[in-house]
Amino acid sequence: MTAWITGCLILLLKLGIVLVGLLLLAAYLVLAERKLLARLQIRLGPNRAGPLGLMQPLADAVKLLTKEDLAPAKADRLIFLLAPAVVAATALLIFAVVPFGQDWVIGGRRIPLVVADLNVGLLYALALSSIGVYGVALGGWSSNSKYALLGGIRGAAQMISYELSLGLALVPVVMLAGSFSLVEIVAAQSRYPFLLVQPLSFLIFFVSAVAETKRIPFDLPEAENELVAGYHTEYSGMRFGLFFLGEYVTMVVMGSLVAVFFLGGWRGPWLPPLVWFFLKVLGVVFFMIWMRGTLPRLRYDQLMHLGWKLLVPLALLNIVVTGAVLLLLRA
């Protein structure tokens, strides 16, 4: 009985740490992005709130919380109010299957550093990232605003298009690891990360992941200079904040998925596993921010052509070639 209670307490503690860590990371990622972008554009970036602007996320949170929460008169109220929470919740939930460190042994009790090691972890992650589309599409649709509707539709079409290449790029990873479990996939990379044997998959997955997070060069659903703010034009206060939070949590989650599938997860020499995991995630996220500071936005036809005419056929070809090479090597 006491063992059961300690187990529950440890689980709750772990969940709390994961959630708070994820939210803090997302909050500080906003600051990091603003700082980095500023540097890339030879500006200073936010530096007023606290030393080096480190209190900026707190100031933003207070501001967002005390702003008025508006809904347009003709909006579909219930859906309008729920949509941002869908985006934020799905992003947070994907992280549940991501292993972020080696199992800890404390007092003879093994604590796996993953919320839940599902045997269908990969499918779970893909399914939830698909549900995230609903938040964008319904948020845009329910606002009853033209810009929001256009942004929502663009967002939905873009996300489902890249969902396909995102998923197909993972099939070779599943073939190599022989499992859907993210823990098993990390374990299968004990000798070398899959990046070395699947560079093409990595590239397809990374490009698709950036498109899924709707960031430059794939930020057409928001496209400030065409659509005001796209699907979240009508949102204000903390509901806008939830869309924002969702986007940055998605960045962290996509970074950790790239790390788990291609960079060997928490594995690495010398440093502790947890540190390695963070370094890899931050590396991927830094690259995303760097891309935003460097690349212009794609045109919509270029976006669709890249997805359907390049990434999907390449991913299909990659699956067949990977299969043949694997079998030839075994023979």
């Binding site: 689980l11 709750l12 969940l15 994961v18 959630l19 919740a89 939930l93 549940a96 299957v97 919320v115 839940a116 090691d117 599902l118 045997n119």
Partner: peptide, 9 residues
Amino acid sequence: NYLPILIYM
């Protein structure tokens, strides 16, 4: 196995 996910959710 899904219990932690439910609580997390």
